[in-house]
Design a binder for these strands. Structure first.
Length: 111
DNA sequence: TTTATGGCTGTCA
DNA sequence: ATGACAGCCATAA
């Protein structure tokens, strides 16, 4: 479908994120060949329909903290979903990115 | 077409 | 450590 949108590409990347793992907006952008356009990733998520197969909750900001959307409450939902997948949060509701950041296979750069 | 708006990020104080 | 500023650019009106 000729979805000439960047969003579709972003969704594709996020769908590849395994459970229990998280990625930052910037990382998703980079994986989607949009290095430096982390913002667009956030907008893509905001444009997500209620029904989707995209694990938007696995996308967090660079601080490892869940970005709140326009309304409050979603943060708690996102946190709950992640917690259900085994992602731990610290006292500040932050995720240990050094431990939960998703590492796409790429030539074995892992660690 | 132009203008305004962002679920961000990195740098500097 | 936190707070403020500027920059990148797609989508919507």
């Amino acid at each position: 479908m000729a979805t000439h949108g960047v969003y579709q590409r972003i969704y594709a990347v996020i769908r590849r994120v395994p459970a229990g793992r998280v990625v930052t907006y910037g990382q998703v952008a980079e994986l989607a060949s949009l290095t430096g356009h982390a913002r667009q990733v956030g907008y893509a998520l905001s444009a997500l329909p209620d029904q989707n197969d995209v694990p938007w909750h696995r996308v967090v900001n660079a601080k490892g903290q869940v970005s709140t959307r326009s309304e409050a409450g979603y943060g708690a939902v996102q946190r709950a979903l992640l917690a259900a997948e085994g992602v731990n949060f610290d006292e500040d509701d932050r995720i240990d990115l050094t431990r939960h950041r998703w590492r796409p296979r790429r030539g074995g750069l892992s660690r």
